[in-house]
Design a protein around this nucleic acid. Structure first.
Length: 289
DNA sequence: CACCACCCCTGGACGC
DNA sequence: TGCGTCCAGGGGTGGT
């Protein structure tokens, strides 16, 4: 669920709350969500947080000693900052069977910070995870360099380069993190609606001239979603437990069978499978031809 | 190389 | 009420 805007909102809230704080200790409750060295040092214990960075949908916490921990939220992951005196909201489900644990269910890693705060990583579906690196440079070299340019900074020539090497459906190409990093199922559908492009159109049928407009709409959509705190469809919240409101602005996602919301359009929103994902589009506004 | 099917996982919605 | 079934999907892998 978290795509670029949601991950950026987590980054911004995390940055406000934890930069400058000392990592006093770490507790790994589920070791198999952590890849790489799992020593306290590798998980930043003894260092201060110097920054929180993002590329596409991936986050990284960087410490003053150079250490670096990357977090993917996957489908259901959350990074929340909590005061250790009240670790969970009353409505939150508690863990059971974890000795001495008072954290919500599916809490896998907890970083205890100075000032009585903690960062907890929860992820029910465990599509996400935590990766440790010697430093940010190693993370970029081994992982982020394999991703395409970030969706907020990609240039028309970069996107065209990624698209012109393929004959896939446009939606499949935009979902490919090696082409552009940060888009997921929801924002691709919304973007293609705004750009009046059909998700199934083969990329090689498109002209280069459409790329600048597509990028302009993509950045407007993503920045707007960040300003609205992201899309909270089920359980997405930022590091301060705040929900977003972008879901109120969706035009096609989740609107199968409803009227197209574009003024003057009398079409009905269709759904089908494109690139293996549930896809919603308006056949009138987004014709194949 | 390009692309697709498949798999990982759990909670929520829905039908009986 | 409760149980079974299906669906959601980011990203890695292995097969065509």
């Amino acid at each position: 669920m978290p795509e670029l805007p949601e991950v950026e909102c987590v980054r911004l809230s995390l940055e406000r709350l934890v930069v400058g704080r000392l990592v006093a200790s770490v507790r790994v409750i589920r070791a198999d969500v952590v890849a790489g060295p799992t020593s306290p040092g590798a998980l930043l214990v003894g260092d201060r947080v110097s920054g929180v960075v993002r590329h596409g949908k991936q986050l990284a916490i960087v410490a003053t000693g150079g250490g670096c921990v990357s977090v993917h939220l996957g489908m259901s992951g959350q990074l929340c900052v909590a005061g250790i005196k009240k670790p969970a909201e009353p409505t939150e489900q508690r863990t059971t069977g974890v000795s001495g644990s008072d954290w919500p269910a599916h809490t896998h890693v907890v970083w205890h910070l100075d000032g009585g705060h903690a960062i907890r990583f929860t992820d029910p579906r465990r599509f996400g995870g935590v990766w440790t690196f010697d430093d940010l440079d190693q993370l970029i070299k081994t992982r982020w360099s394999r991703l395409g340019p970030d969706a907020l900074t990609i240039t028309p020539s970069q996107l065209w380069k990624g698209l012109s090497q393929t004959r896939r459906a446009l939606k499949a190409a935009l979902l490919d993190q090696h082409v552009v990093a940060g888009l997921g199922n929801i924002y691709v559908d919304e973007l293609l609606f705004k750009a009046k492009l059909n998700p199934m159109v083969p990329v090689d049928r498109l002209d280069r001239e459409f790329v600048p407009g597509l990028i302009r709409r993509m950045k407007t959509l993503l920045y707007g979603a960040i300003q609205r705190g992201g899309s909270s469809l089920r359980d997405y919240v930022d590091a301060e437990n705040q929900r977003g409101t972008q879901q109120e602005h969706h035009r096609v996602y989740g609107r199968a069978g409803l009227r197209c919301m574009r003024r003057g359009c009398s079409g009905w929103i269709k759904t089908g499978q494109v690139a293996g994902r549930t896809t919603a589009w308006c056949p009138v506004c987004q014709p194949i031809g």
